[in-house]
Design a protein around this nucleic acid. Structure first.
Lengths: 189, 189
DNA sequence: TGGCTCATGTAAGCCGTTACATGATTTT
DNA sequence: AAAATCATGTAACGGCTTACATGAGCCA
């Protein structure tokens, strides 16, 4: 019973449902919110909008702004239920990551201890910068997203802050353990 | 000065350097270790091995096993230094993730509170299963990887255990906060 | 003998990014 | 007057997965 929506279709339907109307709106919404864990480019969004219309999940409407051609979209009933089905599907747990820092850490036996520690410190600083960046978004996210005051976009941002802070701390304590020659403590399950 | 190795080339060179010899070896090594954050399929590995040989980063050698054709590879000097350059490159911080659970959480305002909590509980159970799975790998990883006793593949596994445990706990406390009607506490930077 | 592992590859297709192309409107 | 933003698209290309194809050796 899992939905057959493409990755880009998922975020498009969701953003339309939250109030986005044009392809440009959708792109802007993604860039301000989900881009860190679910991105999409214009080269994907516009063709996907056409495919979704062909499939009857969304309905296009010409909506010129002054002399500028513009197309607004809204969900059809079929689109609403496809979105709902995906959002409540108990089967789907897609979680992909490609983590270059972890891969380099994995190959740490090919480096000197100092080189490994330098990589960890660099990653630690990187995470710290991301935490600061996310924290700077926090006031805007708290007051709302796309006009309405919505709770979950804000909570997703809080997740991002806490996750990057956790990762920063992992780098810190792992670097410290390696520098001092101790192994890190066994995993706390 | 960032390396121009393709994603698959990175893991191939590293695995060869750690002792893998054939394409099949590399695939097996990946499936037993990095697959959760850096995977590769045969359809990528074999063509990439040919490209790496053309570029002079690895050297092929016919190495039949009984009546079975087999090709062993080793790093050339150029391959060694390309690997080293990538492993110590201070610029590269590629970190991509596509996290379906987070995307659904982001759209939580389109669901009932109970539906959101159900999704969080399902994700929590999923994380718990992954933690258990990773913990079952732990004894093997501790004693070594590809014959040699290597520290960092083990530490990368420990990272995986701790990360998935953290994520499980985040689901738990977020579900509890939503159920009780309280907002989660503000982010701890 | 049937299935598993070892071993190497190709082909089709999906998904995605980047660069390019165009043009109006708004802001500085 | 210039630059940024709004707005929509296409083309080329890269990377990856899946399915398919082949075949030897080993073990129950």
């Amino acid at each position: 019973m899992s939905s057959d929506l493409t990755p880009t279709a998922r975020v498009i339907l969701g953003m339309l449902r939250l109030g986005a109307r044009t392809g440009y709106d959708i792109k802007r919404a993604i860039d301000f919110s989900t881009r860190f864990f679910w991105s999409a480019s214009f080269g994907q969004i516009y063709p996907e909008l056409h495919r979704l219309e062909e499939r009857g999940l969304i309905k296009a409407q010409s909506d010129p702004r002054g002399g500028v051609k513009r197309t607004s979209y809204r969900l059809t009933r079929a689109g609403e239920s496809a979105l709902q089905e995906w959002l409540t599907d108990a089967e789907s747990f897609l979680f992909e990551m490609r983590d270059e820092h972890l891969l380099r850490f994995f190959f740490g036996d090919l480096l000197t201890r100092d080189e490994v520690v330098a990589n960890l410190r660099a990653q630690q600083r990187f995470c710290e910068r991301v935490v600061e960046q996310f924290q700077s978004f926090e006031p805007d996210a708290r007051t709302g997203f796309m006009e309405d005051a919505q709770l979950y976009p804000y909570l997703a941002l809080v997740y991002g802050i806490e996750y990057m802070a956790w990762r920063r701390d992992w780098c810190e304590r792992t670097a410290a353990a390696i520098e001092s020659g101790e192994l890190p403590p066994p995993p706390a399950g």
